[in-house]
Simulated assay, not measured.
Amino acid sequence: MSDWCRNHFEITGKSPLLAVAEEWIKGETAPLYRHAVMQSIKIFLAGCGGLLRPVKTVSFPPFPELIRLGTGQSTLANQAYEQWLEYLQKDVPLDGQHIRLISRVYHQSDIGAIKWESIPELSRRQIGRLIEDRYADWFGVATLSRDIDVALCWEKLGQFPDRSQPCDLL
């Protein structure tokens, strides 16, 4: 196909802002917002699978499966999960401060260190069902096959990209 059409952008502004715009255009920034989303999905799955539980009795009407097993012991991981639930209930924006807070509770929960094989079978089935139901939303590729490798999906949620996509609008 011939190159009969080209799009051109003329971006004007102050020098520091132009540098930020150029990083965005080229995809040269670390996509911390994507990291926070992936971390939150993994925490969400761990909560639904019963791997994490709130320390105090809470309710979450939009998705009761997050707390269906009740409260857990007062461990650092469960306290982190309870904090994450609070962010979810408040519907916090993914700004710099909340991205850092989500990253902190993700690391405190230690959910990133849990391998698929070490998850109890009942929890794996629950998590697997959710991954299959939300596969296209979370992994961005619809599949005609129902043979989704949920173990691979679990591991992918712990692999954070170093660079954003060029002109990433997320």
Results as ranks from 00 to 15, higher is better:
residue 158 G to D: 04
residue 77 A to L: 08
residue 97 Q to L: 13
residue 26 K to Q: 15
residue 81 Y to R: 05
residue 10 E to G: 03
residue 71 T to M: 06
residue 114 I to F: 02
residue 35 H to E: 12
residue 107 H to T: 13
residue 40 S to C: 05
residue 112 G to H: 12
residue 117 E to W: 01
residue 33 Y to S: 03
residue 28 E to I: 01
residue 97 Q to C: 01
residue 160 F to S: 02
residue 156 K to M: 14
residue 86 E to A: 06
residue 14 K to Q: 14
residue 94 L to R: 10
residue 37 V to S: 12
residue 16 P to Q: 05
residue 112 G to R: 09
residue 47 G to P: 06
residue 42 K to R: 15
residue 64 P to K: 09
residue 160 F to D: 03
residue 35 H to Q: 10
residue 124 R to V: 03
residue 158 G to S: 15
residue 48 C to V: 09
residue 5 C to Y: 14
residue 100 R to Q: 15
residue 42 K to Y: 06
residue 45 L to Y: 00
residue 39 Q to S: 06
residue 79 Q to Y: 03
residue 71 T to N: 10
residue 162 D to Q: 11
residue 31 P to A: 08
residue 37 V to N: 06
residue 59 S to W: 04
residue 135 Y to V: 05
residue 6 R to E: 13
residue 72 G to K: 10
residue 128 G to I: 02
residue 53 R to G: 00
residue 42 K to S: 06
residue 64 P to Y: 02
residue 93 P to N: 07
residue 72 G to H: 12
residue 147 D to S: 08
residue 138 W to V: 06
residue 31 P to M: 10
residue 106 Y to V: 10
residue 36 A to T: 08
residue 167 C to F: 14
residue 80 A to W: 12
residue 22 E to C: 01
residue 114 I to D: 03
residue 127 I to G: 00
residue 46 A to I: 05
residue 9 F to R: 07
residue 129 R to L: 00
residue 96 G to C: 03
residue 11 I to M: 13
residue 136 A to N: 05
residue 155 E to R: 09
residue 29 T to A: 11
residue 82 E to A: 01
residue 18 L to K: 06
residue 85 L to I: 06
residue 166 P to N: 06
residue 166 P to V: 04
residue 114 I to Q: 12
residue 40 S to R: 03
residue 163 R to E: 09
residue 73 Q to H: 09
residue 122 L to F: 03
residue 49 G to M: 10
residue 95 D to Y: 05
residue 61 P to M: 10
residue 136 A to G: 03
residue 112 G to W: 11
residue 160 F to C: 02
residue 57 T to P: 01
residue 71 T to Q: 13
residue 83 Q to W: 05
residue 77 A to S: 15
residue 158 G to H: 05
residue 106 Y to L: 12
residue 112 G to D: 09
residue 53 R to E: 00
residue 24 W to N: 04
residue 41 I to G: 02
residue 168 D to V: 04
residue 35 H to L: 07
residue 118 S to F: 04
residue 157 L to M: 11
residue 159 Q to G: 00
residue 33 Y to W: 14
residue 92 V to F: 08
residue 30 A to T: 15
residue 158 G to V: 02
residue 116 W to I: 01
residue 94 L to Q: 02
residue 31 P to L: 11
residue 70 G to I: 07
residue 93 P to F: 01
residue 153 C to T: 05
residue 87 Y to C: 06
residue 157 L to P: 10
residue 160 F to M: 14
residue 113 A to F: 09
residue 109 S to Q: 13
residue 142 A to P: 09
residue 36 A to I: 07
residue 80 A to T: 05
residue 59 S to K: 14
residue 2 S to I: 05
residue 79 Q to L: 13
residue 56 K to I: 01
residue 137 D to E: 15
residue 74 S to T: 11
residue 152 L to S: 13
residue 57 T to E: 15
residue 20 V to F: 08
residue 149 D to A: 07
residue 150 V to G: 00
residue 45 L to T: 04
residue 36 A to L: 07
residue 87 Y to W: 07
residue 157 L to R: 09
residue 109 S to G: 10
residue 149 D to C: 04
residue 19 A to I: 08
residue 37 V to R: 12
residue 80 A to Q: 06
residue 74 S to E: 13
